[in-house]
Write a protein that binds this DNA or RNA. Structure first.
Lengths: 204, 204
DNA sequence: TAACCTACCTAACACTTGTTAGGGAAGGAT
DNA sequence: ATCCTTCCCTAACAAGTGTTAGGTAGGTTA
């Protein structure tokens, strides 16, 4: 969990804070975290490098807050889906759709997460990333295995491979997805699910 | 194309050069290009930072050579596949299999490519990356559309979306694939193709 | 033996990086 | 009018960055 300077998100100045985090996430996503200088962020925000340190106490804590708030909202959405206790196929469909909604809302954060998560997981401050990944695997892999047991998913596929396949196909979309494009998140989710579940080939 | 110091790859000292490039690619893949210091590479190679500049004239040219040699071998493999002039489905299958073989051989380079390609494409020196991506799209998207026209692929899917889907699912595997694991590249390709073409769901 | 080349080291350079201490302008509260 | 808070700027620091000039041990060639 990140250490937030302000007490609550409903603070009067929280708007400016979110605004700055949004531009920071945008630059992080475009250039990569390490390649992004704090002066570049300040430039995009219309101020000077030192001024950022009035709002945040380090560059790292910006990244922390960006990733943590994204993961917070993501898991809130997932919990809602899981609470419905749908069947395996319907659960997968709902999880994928929810994931694309999150990509729609947090495109930049997702792109940053996807690029930096792996080597950040070592860093103790970002331990919650690894924890989230474990929870993620438990939910998705569990649903897949439940589906195989119930005979709705094919049993001749390696579950671990299918899990990574599903996970990756969903999140890499953040690298090309642009909000306001031809397809909304629900439509993209529908087509993705159609390909993954029913296949791209014509049935014989 | 990269500017190679040595005239040919069959030089006597080319072995050491390839060795250094391999360790550099490994560190780049693990830490990211920008986050990797030239001293860290030298450390992994068992020498000091300055000594690297006997073999290469900059950190950037190391990255250049890593990516260029990978793309060179990749396209050599693709050309062989395309020269066979197979049907659309068989072409896709052969391209995916060849891609996983390249991941098997150039795991680190692929990981670096996937992480850095997007923001490197702007840099004029790495213009061949964007060119390769265009060629890539022409081949894959063309094969998909040919398949739809011949009735072997479903016509109710957005071709552009299917292309990105296929492309991403193949290359993200480099982020978790480890050579010498349970599945070889051909087996992984087989399962990937089974999921993408025939779907994960049980046929009704 | 002498000259030479290869492959590395030493030691420093110019520059960029994240970060900080102190100042100041604007505006609301008292 | 005074005080105080908010929000930003100025100016600099210390550490780390890629890179380079020159040196040197050891093997190869003449």
């Amino acid at each position: 969990m990140p250490t937030s300077k302000k007490t609550e998100t409903t603070s009067p100045a929280a708007g400016r804070r979110r605004e700055l985090l949004a531009t920071a996430a945008e630059v992080f996503a475009a250039q990569g975290y390490n390649a992004t200088t704090v002066r570049r962020i300040a430039d995009a925000a219309g101020m000077l490098a030192g001024s950022l340190y009035y709002h945040f106490d380090s560059k790292e804590s910006m990244l922390d807050e960006i990733l943590a708030t994204f993961l917070g909202e993501l898991w809130a959405g997932y919990e809602t889906v899981l609470a419905a206790r749908l069947g395996p196929r319907e659960t997968i469909e709902a999880l994928v759709t929810e994931s694309f909604r999150q990509i729609d809302r947090h495109r930049a954060a997702v792109a940053v997460y996807q690029k930096e998560a792996r080597h950040l997981a070592d860093h103790p401050r970002f331990g919650y990333l690894a924890e989230s990944q474990r929870k993620f695997e438990r939910v998705w892999l569990g649903t897949l295995e439940r589906g195989v047991a119930q005979g709705v998913f094919r049993a001749d596929l390696d579950p671990g491979l299918a899990y990574r396949f599903l996970r990756d196909t969903v999140w890499v979309a953040a690298s090309w997805y642009r909000p306001g494009g031809r397809h909304g998140p629900e439509e993209i989710a529908r087509q993705y699910l159609s390909m993954v579940l029913d296949g791209m080939a014509v049935r014989p």
